[in-house]
Every structure is written in C-alpha cells, then in structure tokens.
Simulated assay, not measured.
Amino acid sequence: MVNPKLKDELNDQLCNAVLKLETVEECYQFFEDICTISELKAMSQRLEVAKMLQKRHTYDEIVSRTGASTATISRVKRCLNYGADGYNLVFERLNREQPEEIK
C-alpha cells in the first residue's frame, strides 16, 4: 500500500519516468539531471546500508564501509523493519538476477 502522504500526480509522474528507463546508462543520465550528486550518493549509500543490515553487519562495519552516520543507519533499519517493504522488494528482484551479490 502506497503512503497516502506521498501519493500524488507529481510523484506518479516521477515513478512512471523511472519505469521508462531501460539501462544503467539511462539511469545515470536521468539521475544526473534530476538529482544533485549529493542526493544520488545519499540514495546509493542508503541502499548499501540496507543491504549490509540485511546481511547482519554491525553499525561499526556499516559506518566504516559506507561512511553513513548512525542516524542514517537507524533510519534505514526502521524502514527495513516497519517501512513499505520497498527495500525488500528490490533486493528480492536483484537476488533473482544476481544471487551472489545480494546474499
């Protein structure tokens, strides 16, 4: 279920735009145009934090590898435990394609 606070026409447009991207190169092009480098790096960092949390890494290991703050790690952990299951959905699909990288 989509969070009603997020659901609107502009966010629908963004999600539909992302779904039109077909390659990693196209994703780079789009995200370079739509995000600052810092925003893109922050999203990438959160994805790696989530991956490491799922693999049961410690906060210290995650901080060391990603440079994420403990506040960011805690936020990602909350999303994994109580969020909309977006991380889990993505990891499940990535695992089907690249099982050795996600497990």
Rank of each mutant, 00 (worst) to 15 (best):
E97S: 07
Q13V: 07
V63Q: 13
L19A: 10
D8S: 11
L14F: 11
L89R: 14
C15L: 15
C79Q: 10
L47T: 09
L19T: 09
K7P: 00
I62G: 02
D85P: 03
V24P: 02
D60Q: 13
E92Q: 14
T66M: 08
G83F: 07
R46G: 01
N16C: 11
V49N: 05
D8V: 06
Y87H: 03
R96K: 13
R75V: 05
V24Q: 11
V63R: 12
P99D: 02
A84R: 12
L10I: 10
S38D: 12
L6F: 11
C27N: 07
Q13G: 11
V76W: 03
D60E: 15
T58R: 07
R65D: 09
E39G: 04
N11T: 15
R93D: 03
F30G: 05
I102R: 02
L14H: 01
Q98Y: 13
T66Q: 10
F91A: 01
V76Q: 03
I34P: 02
I37W: 11
T36N: 07
D8Q: 08
A42Y: 02
V24W: 04
N11S: 15
F31Y: 13
E48P: 01
Y28W: 11
K77L: 07
L40N: 10
E61Y: 01
K20D: 12
Q29L: 14
V63K: 13
T58I: 00
I102V: 15
V76C: 01
L94E: 04
E101V: 11
R65Y: 06
E9P: 08
S38T: 12
E61V: 01
V63M: 13
S69C: 04
T23A: 03
G86L: 06
V24Y: 06
K5L: 15
I62F: 04
M1C: 06
A71K: 08
P99Q: 02
L80Q: 02
D85E: 12
Y87K: 01
Q13D: 06
M43E: 09
Y28F: 14
G86W: 06
E9N: 11
K5G: 06
L19D: 10
K51Y: 08
K41P: 01
L40I: 05
D33C: 07
I34Y: 14
I102D: 00
E22P: 00
L19F: 13
V2H: 09
K103G: 11
V2C: 07
K103W: 06
D60P: 00
M1Q: 09
C15F: 11
E92N: 14
H57R: 14
F91E: 02
K55C: 05
C35G: 04
A17K: 08
N88S: 08
L94S: 03
Y87W: 06
H57M: 10
K55M: 11
R65L: 14
K51R: 15
T23Q: 05
H57P: 00
E48V: 10
L19M: 15
L14E: 01
R75Q: 14
Q45T: 08
D33P: 00
R75D: 10
A84T: 12
Y82M: 02
L40Q: 08
N95I: 04
E100H: 10
E48A: 14
E39P: 05
R46T: 00
L47S: 10
D12H: 12
L21R: 09
S74W: 03
L94T: 03
N88I: 07
I102C: 02
E32F: 12
I73H: 10
N88V: 05
P4F: 07
V2E: 12
